[in-house]
């Protein structure tokens, strides 16, 4: 067990996390764009993309919530060894990781405060498939419209309605990531 927790991280953290961050930044700045990342080999069922995001963004200062399904000893050990992020309940989380169903209800996550809307959670949602089909996205970062296979519409509707409050979302599937900031408007495709 221990050897599994110790492996699978970045071999060259400064350069690999720099490349991973640029991809994550591109994803968040251009909602609907599906990009690929690599470098992490996290224990199942954690995807490569979600593992890369955790290694790149999480540390001892970022409380992390593992939703049921991802709250397994192997993942806890791996996350703790590689990031040191405290594992917490949804209401205290800066980052939350899990499948969309397991993260419900998403209203438990922090949406920031009216004077500090940045103090909000970032969700990392694991999907089986991530494609440019389905929901229609418009808003900052999108020239005209984009399409993305969102797991649900109504939650993201609600999230947009409370802008500038709200959580921000990364969608991950295997080595693919896409971003869905709170500023994006979503409609049925």
């Amino acid at each position: 067990m221990m050897s599994q927790a110790l492996g699978g991280g970045f071999a060259d953290a400064p350069v690999q996390s720099a490349r991973a961050f640029r991809t994550a930044l591109d994803a968040m700045a251009r909602p609907g764009r599906i990009l690929r990342v690599g470098g992490a080999k996290p224990p199942a069922p954690l995807s490569v993309a979600a593992g890369v995001l955790l290694l790149t963004l999480c540390d001892r200062t970022t409380p992390l919530h593992l939703a049921p399904g991802h709250d397994a000893p192997e993942i806890r050990d791996w996350v703790t060894f590689h990031t040191g992020a405290p594992l917490v309940t949804p209401g205290a989380a800066a980052f939350a990781l899990g499948r969309w169903e397991a993260l419900q209800p998403v209203t438990r996550f922090r949406i920031g405060q009216p004077d500090y809307p940045d103090r909000s959670a970032t969700l990392i949602v694991e999907l089986d498939e991530l494609t440019n089909e389905g929901a229609v996205l418009t808003g900052p970062g999108i020239e005209t419209v984009a399409r993305l296979s969102l797991p649900e519409l109504s939650a993201f509707h609600l999230n947009r309605d409370i802008f500038p409050l709200g959580y921000d979302t990364f969608l991950t599937s295997r080595d693919k990531i896409a971003g869905l900031p709170r500023s994006t408007r979503v409609e049925a495709g």
Partner: peptide, 12 residues
């Protein structure tokens, strides 16, 4: 800094 940039991007 990267986390701050991502939040900045999300709240233009």
């Amino acid at each position: 800094i990267r986390r701050a940039i991502l939040k900045g991007v999300a709240i233009p």
